[in-house]
Simulated assay, not measured.
Amino acid sequence: MTIATGTVPTGAGVCLTPPPIPLLDLKAQYLGLRDEISQALHEVAHSSTYVLGPRVKEFEKAFAAHVGARHCIGVNSGTSALHLALIAAGVGPGDEVITVPMTFIATTWAISYVGATPVMVDVDPVTYTMDVDQVERKINSRTKAILPVHLYGQPAAMGPLLKLGRRHGIPVIEDAAQAHGARYQDAGAGTLGHSGCFSFYPGKNLGAYGEAGAIVTHDDQIAARLRSLRDHAQSQRYHHDEIGFNYRMDAFQGAILGIKLRYLEAWTEARRRLAASYLDRLADAPLQLPTEALDRRHVWHLFVVLHPERDRLRDALEARGIGTGLHYPVPVHLQKAFAHLGHHEGDFPVSERIARECLTLPLYPEMTEAQQERVVEALRAVFREEQV
């Protein structure tokens, strides 16, 4: 198979290969914020308050307001957020939590951490979020929580899920790790259920410069317990009321996130414009394109297409200088770590198809029109020249 790569002529008559288009460009984002970030880090260092402290409190207050929650509790990762949220919901050994296999594995790690069992339902073939119709038949006396995932930046069908949870007396905990600023109808993702869990891993729409996460809730008592649990379960210094954790957010991350939060809405709108452009320009391509449900605001953390020859397509794009990603190539129920659940290939066909065919195209707020043009043209060239 012959791969053609584009070139750019220079004034001296020499043709140069254009720079690759990355899947994500964190450096470009940093360069636009460098002075503000440097000043904030200097202020934290000068204060000598490195764990929690005023910068974390300021960010918690601002993020709660941004998503529309009463409380935000900053922690050290999105995984820790999920873990504490399950504890605060009363989930423990012997319990079951209904979730999905098409997710990053941290969703199910948290269930295992509390000694509970992940019970899987497949995802909807259009939105790739929890298939509500499959949930009720998995509910039994051991079910203590429902944990939908707002995958790729689109909220799950929270209305029907909350109705189902209320009918059975089961809390709904939102994995909103990829859904900063997303909305279901008129409510912010993460604010509809018992609690909502966010990740601020560097590649997220709102990313730290390291690990960080948060839990949001409207409930004063839940918030108080979460603040205690993240800080060694201290009711007062050196007095520990239960088994706690060192899940505190550090002050540098709080400062960085506080600055970046000011730009999140503009970045989200840029993502939405880029996604709309992809959807328009690739409408006739032999790909299954993602869909934004009418009652939801998708924030396009990832732009994921499906193709039956995904690996060939990925290799051909890579040869043309286009970076891509796989989110996620092995669904949770087929991971070796969860072999004890007894699942087999074919148990969740929609998730398995997404895993086989998913390909993430470059999309980030700093992406230029020219860069997106190169991605689209590279795709068209692959389909035209290589019969992929």
Rank of each mutant, 00 (worst) to 15 (best):
D315R: 05
H232D: 12
R70T: 14
A339M: 03
L33A: 11
R374G: 02
I73N: 11
T191A: 09
A212M: 08
R271G: 12
L289G: 07
A276R: 13
H344E: 08
R34W: 00
A62P: 02
G213N: 06
A81Y: 01
R166A: 14
V216Y: 00
V8W: 14
A285R: 04
Y184T: 08
A255W: 15
L16P: 00
V97Q: 06
E60T: 04
G321P: 03
A339H: 11
Q221M: 09
E352C: 00
A28I: 05
Q29A: 14
A370G: 10
S199R: 05
S228C: 14
T360L: 08
N76P: 01
I215P: 00
S235Q: 09
H194G: 01
Q335I: 01
P54R: 07
P331F: 04
N76R: 10
F198V: 03
G169Q: 13
I105A: 04
T291H: 15
T79L: 13
H218I: 00
A177W: 01
S141A: 14
D347K: 04
L274I: 15
A276H: 09
H194Y: 15
H344G: 02
Y263S: 11
L24S: 07
H168C: 05
A223K: 09
A88W: 12
V305L: 05
I37M: 08
P101G: 06
V100L: 01
G6C: 05
P286K: 05
L206A: 04
I73D: 03
T107Y: 04
L289S: 13
I105T: 07
R55W: 15
M1G: 13
L192C: 12
K144T: 04
L26D: 01
A12V: 05
A293K: 03
L26N: 07
Y184D: 14
L161F: 07
M102S: 10
V382A: 15
G321N: 02
A64F: 01
R314P: 00
E136Y: 05
A251Y: 03
L287G: 05
N140V: 07
Y30M: 03
P125L: 03
Q335E: 11
A214E: 04
G181R: 11
D133N: 11
F348H: 11
A214Q: 06
I243M: 12
V91L: 12
R272H: 03
G153V: 05
H168G: 09
A224I: 04
G213C: 08
H42A: 14
M1S: 11
D220L: 12
I139R: 03
I222A: 09
H307G: 03
P286L: 02
L24P: 00
T324V: 07
L192A: 06
T5S: 08
A370Q: 15
A85M: 09
A88I: 10
A255Q: 12
G159V: 11
D220A: 15
C15W: 06
A81W: 00
E366K: 13
L261Q: 13
T360K: 02
Y50L: 15
R55Y: 06
H298E: 06
L379S: 10
P101W: 05
A187I: 05
I98F: 06
A208K: 00
L147H: 01
S38C: 09
R374Q: 14
R384C: 08
M158E: 04
